[in-house]
Design a protein around this nucleic acid. Structure first.
Lengths: 197, 197
DNA sequence: GCCGTATACGGAGGCTGCATCCGTTTTTTG
DNA sequence: CAAAAAACGGATGCAGCCTCCGTATACGGC
């Protein structure tokens, strides 16, 4: 039993192949059917037995976390873009949108994420990505607050919850215009009152 | 096949007994395990076979709708209380809280409700309760707007979505203080700026 | 009060998905 | 190239969904 623990021996070739195939297939299935998709189907389409899937990713959350991990590279790139902006309020706005899109990539994603965020369960592989998101949001919020563009009582965690909510709504299949309206409502809740775009 | 269609014959006694037992048991199970609870378990505990449950309530949504129906009497009573208030903004506030509690009564309830609200699917038994809630919210919103306490751009549907979001968050097990903060954030989004409590 | 029939019941069973065990195959190492 | 380590995957047990159909039950007329 090695799979991806780092011991003396070099990881076997088939392990890497299978892992890659599983991740690629899972990504596609999550995209098409949501995070509740059949893991058996994923395994079959990846050309491996169910046991192999479970050996690589003991739980659905572990598989999800691994898929998100590969996805997050592109996400980090976005973050670099955002940080070049001088306007802190605009940066926060864009960050929230980016996070929202990240969270609504797969239908049903917000639920396991919230479950992980709730308690600091170190066994849950989604806890870390979650904490990262909250910390980043908080940084953007503080910057915008220093610029006097966001109300002082707001915290990063609040807007993380808000983004999760919006992402959840999107995942239920609600029309885009309704989602836009909700987002606007929230925005006018955290923006400083005398703000002028 | 009669179950509850109104024909010439009087409904059989066991039908009514079973229906009542199923509703009572389902209510308890939804409360304890959420809307995803095992229907087989509900049937067994109600003392009937699975087929009887499905005969009375062809889908999970139908059972849920029926349970909510019985629950809604108590909800209507609340509404009468609220309407005695002279303050339209306070009335809206209380209505939103009441709706939020209604929506978070069973964990996972917001999801099927949103699915029903999305498209006017007349086959979905949850569509009607959903539309009722939206219409009622809209009435409260208009009243508060006439009193100049809520921003003109806000619609009842927006606050319905917001209430669903908050209820969803509650259902994920998030701490109550975080939920309170999110609710406050949303409130400062729809309230008129120069409002004084 | 009894019987015939409409009506409803419920166990059995097919199906899908989850998760694990263990005999077999593949890969690496020397 | 052989032995050992490592991973594979089919088979399996379990739970829940939903339906079919033979059986039981309540109703209403007599």
């Amino acid at each position: 039993m090695n799979v991806d623990g780092q011991q003396g021996r070099r990881p076997r070739a088939d392990v890497q192949r299978n892992r890659a195939a599983l991740l690629e297939t899972a990504q596609r299935h999550f995209l098409q059917y949501g995070v509740g998709t059949s893991l058996e189907a994923v395994a079959k389409e990846a050309g491996v037995g169910p046991a192999t899937l479970y050996r690589h990713f003991p739980t659905r959350e572990a598989l999800l976390a691994a898929v998100l991990q590969t996805r997050s590279e592109e996400f980090v790139a976005r973050r670099a873009d955002i940080e070049q902006l001088g306007d802190a309020a605009e940066a926060l706005e864009r960050w929230l949108r980016a996070m929202e899109e990240y969270l609504s990539a797969y239908s049903g994603l917000p639920d396991p994420l919230m479950a992980a965020a709730r308690a600091q369960d170190p066994d849950n592989p989604l806890t870390i990505p979650c904490d990262v998101l909250i910390a980043a949001t908080d940084a953007y919020v503080r910057a915008a607050q220093r610029a006097g563009r966001v109300r002082a009582s707001v915290r990063g965690h609040d807007l993380f919850l808000a983004a999760c909510s919006v992402a959840w709504i999107k995942g239920t299949g609600t029309e885009e215009t309704s989602v836009d309206r909700l987002r606007a409502l929230i925005a006018s809740g955290y923006r400083e009152r005398d703000t002028q775009a």
